[in-house]
Design a binder for these strands. Structure first.
Lengths: 200, 200, 200, 200
DNA sequence: GATGAATGAGTATTCATTCAT
DNA sequence: CATGAATGAATACTCATTCAT
């Protein structure tokens, strides 16, 4: 007897709830200090149920790291046209979006940073992040070349510039732990654009 | 019976050795995965000895985070004159130095990032880092204002710009896990300077 | 709504399948290492169904131990005439049969041995085995006395001899784990008979 | 600073105590039902200490199975001269000894039987037992041939007879769970000898 | 001061069992 | 009756810390 649609939906919600809480806890307390019991409590399920939805702690961590990227951030962060005709405006729109997304990514980025910082400890999730990182900088690179071709950006090594841009985004969210002061974020668009070396 | 000078020196060396190995292990494996036994083994002492030199694991971590800063990086990173007459050259010299230091700080920065990312878990070490961060950006800020006053930097909000500069430094070391490609580092001076908005 | 005959038959088959797989798993892996999930998987049913047919794991084990005995082995092992006129031939026939049955009992005997060896852990199944053991040796005893009366067996304490005979049967199956070498079994009839002390 | 002799002795005693209790518990309750906590309690140490002396539960079990064999039983069971001139008396002495040892081995044999019965679960300890078993039957075999050569044993296949003798010893200890009735044991020497087929 | 045995709090994970569908 | 999600008791094992030598 298969599960009813309702049941399946309930289970999906429960899985999502567990994953959300796991992301928060892993981000704030780190992999080791996040116990399955804490995740279960935060999600309102018994700890046994966590194992119904995720094979083990490692897998839970892996999904906590990769699912938000695959399901949300990836498409959002890559949502710009690197070959746009109106190159400068597209780049500005992109920066706007990136700053905005990174601002919202607070918790998730702490997770990302853990994985990158201790990549030998987390090889599988790191691989996923690393691949996205390559794709992301590659597309930024392309947009920069497009801007240079259209004469809206001054010349600069597009590879270095793309890497610098990404470093800035990542570092920005790290430096400011207190993200109440969201007014700041907006203003970071200016140095972000400056990194891409626009013509005056 | 007081300890001889030689003995004192031996002990200091032993303490230093333990701390160095602790920094490496904490950085690469994280706080929880770094066991006292591992640190002791890497330092060539019995694990009991670790407790002779450091009250407990927490204290060991605290010193691993703060001593390199206090003893080495702090003075190096603040070694520039924010009121220099030859403002542009001083800024360029400063960037050179910063990029260079951050390049070398690889391991230590992983530690820093852990503390910042999980600052609720590590309040004491975080406080030390946070205070340095404030001091650092304040001094950068001052240098930027000096550059603007001397007309070598275009106008820009010096607070934002200083934060952007620091974000870039921190993010830069995070993005590139493979630091064999040190050729890259040199080239990062260009976008770093661009962030400060120099006149053409 | 009563169950149809067909349904009842299906259920009986399912119960039998579960029991067979349970016997194999309990025998090869032991009580604790045999999980209900493994039994269910091996039987091709959901683990919930196991509880439909057997109250709990203990009961499943109990039936795994006792049913083969009650339904198959008991009658086979007792299928000899302890008062036969042609005493020697009956005894030889009995030995033939016993050796043959024990040879086939491989898996089941592992189960038996577990219960005997850890009888404090398995008091109920042990009781059943113990009672059969008493009945078996008693009947062997009787056959031995009959043989002695007919002058085909030399004198010997029939109680001891019966126990020795049973010990031999049980030990035999334990000693040889590799039962591919079935040629051996046949030859064991000779020492088995010798135990009963036949006249030359 | 190395441990003092006294300390080392204390530790050896503690290890021995743990092992003895482990043997008893593993024998009576089986591998899975024997918890480290139970062993620790029975030995009067904290459960943490068990791990000081044995790497893990598997290793504890391995040593529980192999040490008594290597240290005690092996030499005792092989303590007979398979080439003795006074062959019959040597064989009788051997049987006496074997029956006596097996009588005393009660607890240990339950352990042995577990390992043999579930040898796929316990490959390493099984290997040790299997090797001893081969050595033992080989030496018995030799003694039987010697007896036949000297004309004190009737002819019989010495390989089969040796196996039968060993099966009997093992089975004997299994059949009788209540070993209070030690009067019985003595009488088992008679069928044991009979198995070896002595001349009248 | 140096060592490492002893301790036990804490944690991931397994698994029998219950029960809603 | 069949299914499998939910539960939490139970257990091996790790590791910081203490302290006797």
């Amino acid at each position: 007897m298969p599960l009813s649609d309702k049941q399946i939906k309930m289970m999906e919600q429960k899985r999502e709830k567990i994953l959300q809480q796991a992301i928060i806890l892993f981000a704030e307390q780190g992999y080791e200090s996040t116990t399955i019991a804490k995740v279960a409590k935060a999600s309102g399920v018994s700890f046994g149920s966590v194992f119904t939805y995720f094979e083990n702690k490692d897998q839970l961590f892996f999904h906590a790291v990769t699912e938000p990227l695959e399901k949300v951030y990836k498409s959002e962060l890559l949502d710009f046209d690197p070959d746009a005709e109106d190159s400068l405006n597209e780049i500005k729109r992109m920066i706007d979006k990136h700053i905005h997304i990174f601002t919202e990514m607070h918790t998730y980025l702490q997770l990302v940073v853990q994985v990158i910082g201790q990549h030998t400890k987390f090889p599988e999730p790191f691989k996923v992040l690393d691949e996205f990182s390559a794709e992301f900088t590659q597309k930024i690179n392309q947009a920069i070349q497009n801007g240079q071709k259209h004469g809206v950006l001054e010349d600069s090594d597009p590879v270095i510039t793309a890497e610098a841009y990404m470093s800035f985004l990542l570092g920005m969210r790290l430096t400011f732990t207190d993200f109440a002061m969201s007014g700041l974020w907006d203003q970071l668009k200016i140095p972000a654009l400056r990194l891409l070396n626009p013509k005056h």
